[in-house]
């Protein structure tokens, strides 16, 4: 089961440039994937890859953060940090999924929403706020999987869900350990200590009831992890699809309502 990595070792594992991100899971889990682009407002944000395909013959909408492989690709994708258009594309396609009663699967892996002058001018805060608000009422099952670094509000904007899943070495935090250490101790090099205190590992979040499932990674290949995740996703889709819309939305409300109540 669990290995003995420190919290910061998991942060480093979550950020590892070789770690599979959204596109990997789409490629290995989703059949006949059709990528859909753009927010129909301003542009298309490559930090979020979204579209429709099948998981074991079940149509699903997939929305995935993607940081890219090559340096050019990573520049194009802002290293996986979404701009407002990325969140708006995500919401647009969630609404499309709702219309056709199709489950939504979100893959989260990003240091956070992009921090820039233009992103602010186009309403980065509003874009995230609208996703939180609309996802709370989305009348179709939503499953979110944190596969890498789940960085703050920019991650939560794809994280309002019925079932939250984390890969074992993924992390999910209100602030980066470096940011936390800089604010608290004026010393970003104390990030490993901050990571420990922030309780950001998958097992921490499972113990807090913030996530429902952890997919073990230790001793497993990427393909094995992907396949284990697929099995869990199919289970969850089946379970959530059996609920009435009212039950689904009530369950989602209560899932978040009980946190810190």
């Amino acid at each position: 089961m669990a290995d003995t990595k420190t919290a910061y070792e998991r942060v480093q594992a979550a950020r590892n440039g070789k770690r599979p991100m959204g596109s990997y899971y789409i490629e290995h889990m989703v059949d006949d994937f059709v990528e859909l682009h753009g927010d129909r407002r301003f542009g298309d944000d490559a930090a979020i890859v979204a579209g429709i395909g099948y998981i074991n013959h079940i149509p699903v909408t997939v929305i995935a953060m993607e940081r890219g492989d090559t340096i050019e690709d990573r520049m194009k994708r802002n290293f996986g940090c979404p701009e407002p258009e990325g969140y708006r594309k995500a919401l647009r396609l969630m609404k499309e999924a709702e219309k056709f009663h199709r489950p939504v699967i979100c893959f989260i892996g990003s240091s956070g929403a992009y921090c820039g002058i233009e992103a602010e001018k186009r309403g980065q805060g509003l874009a995230i706020a609208e996703n939180l608000y609309e996802m709370m009422g989305l009348k179709t099952p939503v499953i979110s999987v944190v596969v890498g670094e789940g960085g703050s509000g920019g991650a939560l904007a794809l994280g309002v869900c019925d079932t939250a899943i984390m890969l074992e070495n993924a992390v999910y935090s209100v602030i980066s350990p470096e940011g936390c250490a800089s604010i608290l101790w004026k010393d970003a090099s104390k990030a490993p200590e901050a990571a420990e205190h922030l309780r950001l590992t998958s097992y921490d979040l499972l113990s807090f009831d913030v996530v429902e499932k952890v997919i073990p990674e230790t001793g497993k290949t990427d393909r094995e992890i992907c396949s284990a995740l697929k099995t869990v996703l199919l289970d969850e889709i089946k379970k959530l699809s059996s609920l009435t819309t009212e039950e689904l939305l009530d369950h989602r409300y209560q899932k978040f309502r009980k946190i810190g109540a």
Binding site: A129, M136, Y172, V174, R199
Partner: peptide, 26 residues
């Protein structure tokens, strides 16, 4: 913003409050 001393619990309050705002609006 969110209070870092309460970690993920602080972050999740953003979703929790959003849910209550939505129900009020509906």
């Amino acid at each position: 913003g969110a209070r870092m001393q309460e970690g993920i619990f602080s972050l999740m309050q953003m979703a929790k409050v959003s849910g209550a705002v939505k129900r009020h609006s509906e």
